[in-house]
Design a protein around this nucleic acid. Sequence first.
DNA 1: CAGTGGTCTAGACCACCAG
DNA 2: TGGTGGTCTAGACCACTGA
Lengths: 230, 230
Amino acid sequence: MNERSHQAIREAIRERISSGEWAPGALMPGEADLADEYQCARTTVNRALQSLAEDGLIERKRRAGTRVKEIPVKRARFDIPLIRQEVEATGAQYRPHLLLHEIIEAPDAVAARLRLKTSARALHLQTVHLADGAPYAFEDRWVNIDAAPGILDAPLEEMSANEWLLKQVPYSSGDVAFTAAPAGPRESAALDVAEGAALFILDRTTWLEDRHVTTMKLFYRPGHTLHSRV
Amino acid sequence: MNERSHQAIREAIRERISSGEWAPGALMPGEADLADEYQCARTTVNRALQSLAEDGLIERKRRAGTRVKEIPVKRARFDIPLIRQEVEATGAQYRPHLLLHEIIEAPDAVAARLRLKTSARALHLQTVHLADGAPYAFEDRWVNIDAAPGILDAPLEEMSANEWLLKQVPYSSGDVAFTAAPAGPRESAALDVAEGAALFILDRTTWLEDRHVTTMKLFYRPGHTLHSRV
DNA sequence: CAGTGGTCTAGACCACCAG
DNA sequence: TGGTGGTCTAGACCACTGA
């Protein structure tokens, strides 16, 4: 990272913002001026400023110029790991245990998420993810069979459905949501916790272009946290 | 977004990856080749590929070239809003209600987070955030008085401590974590829910360079979810 | 409608590191 | 040690939009 690099310039400008040199809402110098000041090409300043804009620190508009945001957006990034990796990272041995494997009519909520016709059938899976044999998380998943037909022959006792699907449709898009809910009877039994215990939940729907492949809820054992840096 | 723009090229390449043209782990063509193929400058391809690398879809190494990731990282981004904005976005009227305002010796866990000497005193605040008068979230916050002295004179009945601090130290860094926990007596009373109810919690510590300013836990009412797109 | 950011280009040099 | 990505430059044109 050179002294005149876009990264160096970005950090320099970030400093000037946090030090209050430009007040919240204030107009900053234009790219050309900054390029002049830092003795570099405008392209380089542009890159630095775009990066700061992505971080939510400044706002840029053509003609209007660049302004320090009044209220900086706090933007957190999370890497959502494969459960196998998450478990193995703690040094424990991972094993999925399939509790339920059925093909039934999908409930309306599920059908909507997978874009199924009402009363269409889907694959319903329930899995406990074990770390050194102890429950780590409980997964309730629905799979659109048309979108991933091979799933019916997949060896789901060795490889969780998640892993299998990841191999088949690796570069899919998705929706993620986090929430909390009390453990119901299924979660309580699977995770070996009291009914009503507060569980952290990851709720995710995945698709590839217009093929809605799967939707699942992942219930973590009490105490699980998800970290990030802002 | 032109046809030869870096965005267009990024999406084209993303397509080629999801279609399986290059298998997971496979070596992709070099920047020069792609530039040739797309009839654009190498810089443009470089930008497209860097963007895909940021998204966790590919991995790039000098000399070794660019490879499709074996296991794509699912990277979720969340904008953490000001509670006021969050509430007002639902059309409700926002009001913070200060329940507790005391200066006491900070517990060890808090002192550690704020880098205080043991048994140093800190400002302890408890606030209910109200939406149209109904509890929306409960906040338990500790403030390092040395790092934000003016807080003692702040009008915390009109403006939550969060907002006040944001005005004073707007462009700070921080740690964020999400988790779930049962409502204790304080949360239960403040949010008007049963004790033991499953609450979604945002836990955050904020600093500006080496001044550790504040740490807080925000307990949302049951049912709250945090959304994102991957 | 003029000034700002957005972006492309062509060329260049550099840093890194696998072979 | 040579080939790859990383990046800077100078110049150009474009797109948007607020004065």
